[in-house]
Simulated assay, not measured.
Amino acid sequence: MTLDQAQQSPSLAARLSAIDTRIADAARLAGRDPAEITRIVVTKFHPASLVRELHELGVREVGENRQQELTSKQGELAELDLRWHFIGQAQTNKAASIRRSADVVHSLDRDRLADALDRVADSDDVLDVLVQINLTDDEGRGGVSPADAPALAEHVLSLPSLRLRGVMAVAPLDEEPASAFARLHDVAESVRGLAPDATWISAGMTGDFVEAIAAGATHLRIGSAITGPRPDRG
């Protein structure tokens, strides 16, 4: 980026404010209270220094896709009052590392992962989790099928160190977001039938959070629209 481009690009504070304004407008358009919606800033590949800047701007909810980054940034910024959301695909052998660093895991998609996260719990520690739903026909994608979500939710409910908060999904690229999120809303209703307190719906990113809000999303995962382009990893 040239100096002229840097001078012309919006500041981090301006980008954050612009997204928050759009979220509030979308919530009101859907007849919802903007205060019901949690904006998570996804800082994938960005340095911990950016998270510190975000904290200074009032951000308290931060998301990471990779366990290594989550562990590194959480450790470096442990003195800050941040809530760390793990939103990437999780391997069972990373369960202990994820659990030590995350306050919420959005991507719980199988019994074995639930068991692994429960097994590494410290005494009375309780971890908030969401069941990830696969809204595509590709079984290789992360998430459980909508039909299998209640069974996974029931399994999570049987594990004492996990607290089921709700569901999470990514809208498929080949489907209108409104349609996909309407299906997710139905799955969320079925899960709430088993666990009335599981009211969270984690859905919506930069390109589709307006549709997600209209469908009842409570948690939005916003990345580069706030953080700016991801750094070149070399």
Rank of each mutant, 00 (worst) to 15 (best):
S49D: 11
V42I: 03
Q74M: 06
W84K: 04
R52T: 07
A13C: 13
R60Y: 04
V59W: 01
R165E: 14
G143C: 09
R22W: 08
L164S: 05
E64D: 06
L3D: 13
D25F: 09
V126Y: 02
L164A: 14
Q67K: 14
D115K: 10
G58Y: 03
D125F: 09
R32M: 08
V210D: 05
P231K: 02
W84C: 01
P231G: 07
G234M: 06
R60C: 05
T227I: 01
S145Y: 08
G142T: 01
I226E: 14
L113T: 04
L135G: 12
G166D: 12
P177S: 08
A96S: 00
G204F: 14
G223N: 05
I37N: 09
F209R: 09
H85L: 10
V51G: 08
I133V: 15
G143A: 01
A116Q: 05
L50M: 12
V144H: 10
A182D: 00
L54P: 08
V167W: 11
D208F: 00
G216W: 06
V51I: 00
P177Q: 09
I133K: 12
A215K: 11
F45H: 05
A6H: 07
L152M: 02
S49C: 00
H155C: 06
L80G: 07
G223F: 02
V51N: 00
D122H: 05
G193Q: 12
E69Q: 05
L152Y: 09
R99Y: 00
R112V: 00
A26D: 11
A35I: 08
G142M: 14
L113G: 11
L12M: 10
E61K: 02
I213R: 08
V167K: 02
V187Y: 10
A180R: 01
F181L: 11
G204H: 10
P160R: 14
D20N: 15
V144Y: 05
L117H: 11
A153W: 07
A121Q: 01
R163G: 12
Q5H: 13
S161M: 07
E154Y: 04
L135F: 06
A35E: 08
G204V: 00
L184E: 04
Q132K: 14
V105K: 10
P231D: 03
S107N: 07
R99G: 02
V42G: 06
S72T: 10
L54E: 04
V191A: 03
E53L: 11
A96M: 14
S190H: 02
R163Y: 05
A212T: 04
G216L: 07
A35S: 10
T71Q: 02
E189M: 08
P231M: 00
T21A: 11
A151N: 15
V187K: 10
A151C: 15
D124H: 10
I98Q: 14
G207D: 09
I226K: 15
A153F: 12
T43S: 09
A182S: 13
A182R: 04
G31A: 01
V105T: 01
V105G: 13
V62P: 08
A121N: 12
L3G: 02
A151Y: 15
R110A: 06
A96G: 05
L113Y: 13
R32K: 05
A116G: 09
A212G: 08
W200V: 14
E69H: 15
L12K: 12
A95T: 04
G204N: 07
V144D: 01
V105H: 01
T199F: 00
L184R: 11
